[in-house]
Simulated scan of single mutants.
Amino acid sequence: MIAWVLRSIVLGALVVALRVVLGFAMVYWPTHGAQMRALSLIALLAAVVVWGLFDGRRNRAADSGRGPDLTMRWLKVAVAGGVGSGLVAWLLDFLPRFDLGDNGLLFEVTAGASFIILLIFVPASIGIGIGRLLAERKAGKGRSTPPSLLSAAGTAI
């Protein structure tokens, strides 16, 4: 249980931190909004994919066969991170000098949270798949002979 809680707290805090930095930057450099939004999105996606990649590699390396499914762990991470970051951002928006979009609570815990859920869950799933693939490839390099392309009868498949 502690694994998904840690991930959701860290990724939710990253989302809030990126929104705060983006809010401050938009006040001082409003003409560079598109670039700053893209940079924030890339930073979040990179963090999620890398963490998913490490999870996938560790999962496949720990179990030489098929490791346990990480889908539910990352779905819980995404939901907790999305809803939690929406609540924190909504609360921070009441503080002076924090411009986080003036969104209402209903928006933050529904539409805003669902977007963050997708931004966490989908890239994490991609990272897990790549990590498992890399772990299988690394484990497969120890074979002395490559797998045969011939069937039992000796004909090419």
Rank of each mutant, 00 (worst) to 15 (best):
A34Q: 12
A34G: 11
M36C: 04
R37Q: 12
R37Y: 09
R37W: 14
A38P: 01
A38E: 08
L39I: 15
L39W: 13
S40F: 11
S40Q: 04
L41M: 15
I42Y: 09
I42W: 13
A43N: 05
L44Y: 03
L44D: 01
L45E: 02
A46E: 02
A46D: 03
A46F: 06
A46W: 01
A47L: 08
A47Y: 09
A47C: 13
V48L: 09
V48C: 10
V48W: 06
V48Q: 03
V49W: 02
W51T: 07
L53K: 03
L53H: 08
F54C: 05
F54E: 03
D55I: 01
D55E: 10
G56A: 10
G56P: 04
R57W: 09
R57T: 08
R58P: 00
N59P: 07
N59I: 05
N59D: 13
R60F: 06
R60Y: 04
A61R: 08
A61D: 13
A62V: 06
A62C: 11
A62I: 06
D63F: 04
D63Q: 05
S64A: 14
G65D: 11
G65K: 04
G65A: 13
R66G: 04
R66N: 07
R66K: 12
G67A: 15
G67C: 04
D69H: 01
